[in-house]
């Protein structure tokens, strides 16, 4: 829309503003998941204990996760922001479990 200055018969054209050519896109960080992988050495009972101790799972849920690791080769045991997921991964490593991180 143009602007009119009072008392003067002058019309000022608006500046033309170019649209920015760079389009920014933002990737939403949906967080990370902590995966525990099967290994042939750690005892099943020990893995269940670790899941209960570290994540507060019930015996039933910890057992379900352990069996998923054993039969399917892996299971997601925790998720969250990168810092939390890395802390969880570190705690699992401290307990000798083979754990890695994946972006959600």
């Amino acid at each position: 829309m143009a602007a009119v200055i009072p008392g003067r018969d002058v019309t000022i054209a608006p500046d033309r503003i170019d649209r920015p050519e760079v389009r920014e896109t933002f990737e939403v960080d949906r967080g990370w998941q902590v995966v525990v992988w099967n290994d042939p050495v750690n005892l099943m009972s020990y893995v269940v204990f670790v899941f209960r101790r570290l994540f507060g799972h019930s015996l039933e849920e910890a057992t379900r996760l352990m069996l998923a690791v054993h039969h399917e080769g892996r299971a997601v045991v925790a998720h969250g922001p990168l810092e939390k997921a890395e802390a969880d991964c570190h705690r699992l490593h401290h307990h000798g479990l083979w754990a890695t991180l994946e972006r959600l």
């Binding site: 050495v41 750690n42 020990y46 204990f49 401290h94 307990h95 000798g96």
Partner: peptide, 10 residues
């Protein structure tokens, strides 16, 4: 003890 034994087994 639990973790040290586990590490030794690995």
């Amino acid at each position: 003890w639990l973790r040290a034994i586990g590490e030794a087994r690995l």
